[in-house]
């Protein structure tokens, strides 16, 4: 950034879900965003999409202040595609790299659309982004949001993380959240890949379910916020957040624990 107060220009992308999301963030807002449903094809489209976005907006590498990327969780292979591209691009162009949680991007993206419908009394909303992790599990997190009029969604006090990204059993977890939200007087919103869990979530009394596909729109603001606070990532050390070990490592650990018992 040339001037300290200027909003940064960011190239942002995410491939943690079935959606390939690419966006350009400039002057405090998203100026271009594409969302393609290219399941299993992210590695084919990601680089051409990035190139087309830069060309379409007449943006050269010298104008880019940082590369922003969703670091997962999500599909292992999927997350690796965006992270490999982001690390390589940041290194090649010598730009700062800013990793954001793909779950937070999913949550914020949904909240940007939902907040008009939020409680007019200003009660907090619990935004719970989920992604299908198979076998009744989800990658999930929880954010506490307050609809502060038309102001910045990320303004102080308007958006805060409440639970870390992790892999959880949807049945158990959703019931606990539902009870706790009722107790806290908060509205509860499950957003993201909710469709596979519709039956499960419909049982909950105080929850709303909003299917929502990842869009590039939320990564830019989240990354700009981190960049402002100097929270850039080390390009070489940067890795996806898988939230769990590989099966092989888990099995080996279990069998070693068994042996030492």
């Amino acid at each position: 950034m040339n001037e300290s107060n200027r909003e940064p220009t960011l190239l942002a992308f995410d491939t943690s879900t079935g959606t390939l999301a690419v966006s350009l963030y400039r002057d405090g807002h998203v100026v271009d965003a594409t969302q393609s449903f290219t399941e299993r094809n992210h590695s084919v489209r990601i680089v051409p999409e990035i190139r087309e976005m830069l060309r379409r907006n007449g943006t050269g590498k010298e104008e880019i202040d940082a590369i922003a990327v969703g670091r997962g969780p999500g599909s292992y292979t999927g997350v690796r595609i965006a992270v490999s591209a982001a690390k390589t691009l940041a290194w090649t162009w010598d730009k700062p790299l800013v990793g954001v949680s793909s779950l937070e991007a999913l949550a914020l993206g949904a909240w940007q659309r939902l907040r008009q419908e939020a409680d007019p009394l200003g009660r907090p909303a619990w935004i719970v982004p989920i992604m299908d992790a198979r076998r009744g599990q989800v990658y999930g997190a929880r954010f506490r949001a307050v609809a502060a009029g038309a102001g910045d969604v990320l303004a102080a006090g308007a958006w805060a993380r409440a639970d870390e990204d992790g892999i959880r059993l949807i049945g158990e977890w959703s019931e606990v959240l539902s009870a706790r939200a009722a107790e806290a007087g908060a509205s509860l919103w499950f957003v993201g890949e909710t469709t596979p869990f519709e039956a499960e979530l419909a049982k909950l009394e105080h929850a709303k379910t909003v299917p929502f596909a990842m869009d590039g729109g939320a990564i830019g603001p989240l990354a700009a916020d981190r960049l402002r606070r100097g929270m850039t990532d080390d390009v070489h050390a940067f890795a996806p957040n898988y939230t769990q070990q590989t099966e092989a490592e888990a099995k080996l650990q279990a069998s070693e624990a068994e042996r030492t018992r």
Partner: peptide, 13 residues
């Protein structure tokens, strides 16, 4: 995939 995506990114960049 890791090498392929890195290589494409380099070629573009």
């Amino acid at each position: 995939l890791v090498g392929v995506v890195a290589a494409k990114t380099l070629a573009m960049a």
